[in-house]
């Protein structure tokens, strides 16, 4: 019995210590977004909260098994100077209580984490993707080609938004829903259907990505929640996440999340520049 008690105490102690460490990690960025190094969008928050919850759940499991391995090595191993070479004195081949608890617990844990944070989080994500929940959304047409992100703002008649250096750039007003319309084709060689490949539209700071598939048009709604930019935080960048050929590492674009007033000024500038 004593082994069980010692193990139980150690398990609880290390689990509590681990959870305290996990809490520090989770809280190392606002809104519990520590593991993601901060999150700047509404849907990203769903993901990071799921991540946080799984950290809480996984930690005691990790401690249980890892501690069991270490505990066995310390407590049950035969010392070199021990004369005994025979079999272990305790020879049990089953323990209905242990097996039963294990099976029931593993099924319960899996069903629970499937329901929450998975299904519950998905519910939030799905709701966030419904057009009626995104009134007055800013439409950004995103075209992925080998190898460039092209952003156009049809509501503002901006065909291809460029910065002063002539590079594609994504400007978004903070706290206004955005509807990204994602397509993969090469508008400069539109006749060549064979060069369109799968890309991945990913802004790490927003905590979500969606593949851009040739021949399909996909939509992604999200709301940026923080004023930020690639210069301030390099995770705020559009990055192709799905391998798309030699240019894949360089398929990035800068992102600026700005106030409504700054966005309006930027739109005027783009229109004036004839973009």
């Amino acid at each position: 019995m004593s082994d069980v008690v010692i193990f139980g105490i150690l398990w609880i102690v290390f689990s509590v210590l681990g959870e305290l460490g996990a809490k520090a990690w989770v809280d190392s960025a606002p809104q519990g977004s520590g593991p993601y190094f901060g999150v700047a969008s509404n849907v990203g928050l769903v993901g990071v909260h799921a991540f946080d919850f799984l950290v809480w759940v996984a930690l005691p499991i990790f401690v249980f098994v890892a501690l069991m391995i270490v505990f066995s090595m310390v407590r049950f191993h035969v010392r070199k100077d021990s004369p005994a070479t025979g079999d272990a004195p305790a020879q049990f081949r089953n323990n209905k209580a242990f097996v039963g608890i294990w099976v029931v617990a593993s099924i319960l844990i899996n069903v629970l984490i499937w329901l929450h944070p998975n299904a519950s989080g998905l519910e939030t994500v799905f709701a966030a993707q419904a057009p009626q929940n995104n009134p007055n959304a800013l439409v950004v047409d995103v075209t992925a080609r080998q190898w460039e992100w092209i952003f156009s703002y049809p509501q503002y008649h901006i065909t291809q938004s460029l910065n002063a250096a002539g590079q594609d750039v994504l400007y978004l007003p903070v706290n206004r829903p955005v509807k990204f319309v994602l397509r993969s084709y090469d508008p400069f060689h539109a006749y060549d259907y064979q060069i369109a490949v799968i890309h991945g539209f990913w802004i790490p700071a927003f905590g979500i990505k969606l593949d851009v598939v040739p021949g399909e048009t996909r939509q992604l709604y999200l709301t940026p929640t923080k004023l930020t930019s690639t210069e301030q935080n390099p995770m705020t960048r559009v990055q192709c996440s799905e391998v798309c050929g030699p240019g894949h590492p360089y398929m990035e674009a800068n992102v600026h999340v700005v106030t409504a007033a700054q966005f309006a000024a930027w739109v005027k500038g783009q229109q004036a520049a004839g973009n």
Partner: peptide, 26 residues
């Protein structure tokens, strides 16, 4: 056993769709 434990537990995070949408392809 220890290593595969970490491999398996990180699988929990990847199996979770909202988290996967960030972790996938990274």
């Amino acid at each position: 056993m220890f290593n595969f434990l970490i491999g398996g537990l990180t699988g929990l995070f990847l199996a979770d769709v909202p988290a996967n949408l960030q972790l996938h392809d990274t």
